[in-house]
């Protein structure tokens, strides 16, 4: 503990840029300015409980949930292939998974816009085969596609890092005892990879449920998600109080889901976030 002072700058950083803003957001959400100065009020939270806004919340959770499930279904086999010991050129594949993340997130999303357009690349190819054109852009599917595409590396990497650490002798032992491939997967690999799955789920779900750029660009602003609602309060309406209240509700939901996940993930193996 001699080197403790090394952590002080980091602590200071956290206080200035994380703790203080969080307290400010909380204050904005529970105080409203009236003629008699600041007054405590839960009106902003009450307003969020209107069916209209709950619908926005529900829509965000559903879309983010679907995206997370798709990421898991697509990402798990990829992580398994990457971690399997027979795999040569493993680092190259891993590199391919991470490569898109080197490019700016906005640019990649804009690129999808031009691909999905009515006169875009995909419809051009389809029309070559005499099908279409389809309206691929500006619907729920486009938003989900954008989320899956942008966040899938966050699913693959934690699962991969957990699987890589599974001791091969455990699998060999199971095989020696007569388990076939399916049983090995069911009884050994999958349970041991669960910590990675849980942190993958939370690392995909959290950014997906709060994103506002993807629904704006690929959803055409029609599918207002919770992130858009918050953005709108801060940037357009200037209603910081309501925006803060929505942010706090969102944070509470994320904290609860994190708590549930960490309850299942007792070993803390999957590249922990907390």
């Amino acid at each position: 503990m001699k080197k403790r002072w090394i952590s002080y700058p980091y602590l200071l950083w956290m206080i200035i840029f994380i703790i203080v803003p969080l307290i400010l957001v909380l204050c904005f959400s529970i105080f409203i300015s009236t003629d008699n100065g600041l007054q405590f009020s839960l009106n902003n939270y009450k307003r969020f409980m209107e069916p209209l806004y709950l619908k926005v919340l529900w829509r965000s959770v559903v879309l983010a949930g679907i995206s997370t499930i798709i990421c898991l279904i697509l990402g798990y086999p990829v992580a398994m292939i990457l971690a399997s010991k027979q795999m040569s050129k493993k680092s190259f594949l891993l590199f391919l998974c991470i490569l898109p993340m080197w490019m700016n997130f906005l640019l990649r999303t804009y690129a999808w816009m031009t691909l999905l357009e009515k006169n875009g690349f995909i419809n051009k190819i389809l029309s070559f085969f005499g099908i279409g054109p389809f309206q691929l852009l500006y619907n729920n599917a486009a938003v989900i596609l954008g989320m899956v595409y942008n966040f899938i590396p966050f699913m693959i990497l934690p699962i991969y890092s957990v699987m890589k650490k599974i001791d091969p002798s455990v699998i060999e032992a199971a095989e020696d005892l007569g388990a076939n491939q399916i049983t090995v997967f069911k009884k050994i690999i999958f349970p041991l990879s669960l910590p990675g799955v849980f942190s993958g789920i939370s690392m995909v779900f959290m950014p997906a449920v709060t994103t506002f750029v993807i629904p704006r660009l690929l959803g055409g602003g029609q599918f207002m998600l919770i992130g858009n609602l918050i953005e709108r309060q801060f940037l357009l309406s200037g209603d910081w109080n309501f925006g803060s209240a929505v942010s706090i509700v969102m944070m509470i939901i994320i904290l609860i889901s994190m708590a549930i996940i960490s309850k299942y993930d007792k070993e803390h193996e999957g590249g922990q976030l907390w």
Binding site: Q135, L137, Y138, G219, G220, G221, Q222
Partner: peptide
């Protein structure tokens, strides 16, 4: 709203 392609 259902008729609108996007708000841009």
């Amino acid at each position: 709203k259902p008729l609108v392609l996007a708000y841009v």
